Amino acid sequence: DVIQCVKMVKKHNHCVPFQCFDRVLDQLIKLNSPAVVVWDFYVEILGCGYPPKLCNFNILMNRFCKEWKVKEAKLVFDEISRSGLRPTIVSYNTLINGYCKCGNLDEGFRLKRVMEENRLVPDVFTYSALVNGLCKDGRMDDANQVFDEMSSKGLVANDVIYTTLLNGFCKNGKVSLAMELYGRMLMKGVKPDLIMYNTLINVLCKSGNIIEAKNLIDEMSMKGLKADKITYTTLIDGCCKEGNLDAALKIRKQMMREGIELDNVAYT
């Protein structure tokens, strides 16, 4: 209704204060309105002389990417330059992440090159998006190369990148590489979280390394992290597949002592 009112005012050649545009745009964003609705309104108010703001373009790109509408996000990106603004690293990262999540890695890497040509230096978030896309595509060698490139430029990987790589190695059955990366990560002073531990425990159990998986659980405990339902269920599954039912039942008892309820997966 508010948008229609704005259109009516504009139709009758009345001026709408920019503050009014700000409030409507702000509400559309806060209410999680569909990206296309917000974008259409934004284009309309730009036509009324509303000054373009880079933050609004970035928000709209991010919204389109979350809705898996990367083509529309690219249109927003192109409009930044046409509006006399210069895309920032946030603008590029948003679109690169969108392309990578949709599996269009070629376009993601092309944008990285364009960004560098425009004298913008890729940051950890740029590399994180690319590594994540490569891991999802099973291209672990390429993901490792991108990771090495990032490290060679003095950028410090965060736990998100490490978890992504570890998960990728694990899913592709490269247990030794996963554990090697884990060791390098510890040497860099990065503290693993519960998700990272569960990822490693999962791959160790699937590869039959139950003892190493248990050692990781002990390590977790020493570092103040408490094993959760996923941790124990993964270990139960590993023990059962190895035929060690006694160990699996002991884990079940430990879960009960700690007040962790078994779910259908664990019982199965």
Rank of each mutant, 00 (worst) to 15 (best):
V121P: 11
N244S: 14
C240S: 09
I3M: 14
L204E: 05
W39S: 13
L54C: 12
L75F: 13
C100H: 00
A129R: 05
G238I: 08
R252N: 07
P192E: 01
Y99V: 05
C5T: 15
V156M: 03
C65K: 12
T199K: 09
N172T: 13
P192D: 01
M150D: 05
L75K: 12
Y127D: 11
L235N: 03
V9Q: 06
G108C: 04
N132V: 08
D1R: 13
K174L: 15
N93V: 04
V2C: 13
K241S: 02
K214E: 11
G243Y: 09
N62L: 08
L75H: 14
I96P: 14
A227T: 01
E116W: 08
R63P: 07
T234I: 02
N167P: 14
F77Y: 08
N264A: 12
M115T: 01
N202P: 01
M196W: 12
K74Q: 10
S33Y: 10
N13D: 15
K136H: 07
I217P: 04
I59W: 15
A247F: 02
L200Q: 03
K112L: 12
K171A: 09
E72C: 11
V190Y: 10
L194A: 05
H14R: 14
V90S: 02
D1Q: 13
V190W: 09
N93Q: 00
C20P: 02
D26M: 14
K253D: 10
K241Y: 02
R82E: 12
N144Q: 13
I3G: 07
S81F: 12
G259L: 09
L105N: 06
K174C: 09
E242Q: 12
C5Y: 15
M187G: 07
R110C: 06
E79G: 10
C240E: 11
G49H: 03
Q4P: 08
A248W: 00
G173F: 05
A157E: 03
C65W: 07
G208P: 02
R139D: 01
D1S: 15
G133M: 01
K69P: 00
L60K: 11
G208R: 06
E242W: 11
M222N: 11
T94H: 01
V160G: 00
M179K: 07
G154P: 06
C5L: 15
C65L: 06
G238P: 04
Q19M: 12
G108K: 01
P87V: 14
S33K: 10
E72Y: 09
A157T: 04
T126Y: 04
Y267K: 14
K69L: 10
N167V: 05
L31S: 14
T94S: 00
V203E: 02
S207K: 11
E117C: 11
K226I: 07
S91Q: 00
G108W: 04
D78M: 03
P51C: 04
G47L: 08
K101Q: 00
F57D: 06
Y99M: 03
S152A: 15
C170H: 09
K206Q: 06
E44F: 15
L245Y: 15
F77T: 05
L155D: 01
N264G: 12
D263N: 03
K71G: 09
K69A: 10
L31V: 08
M255T: 06
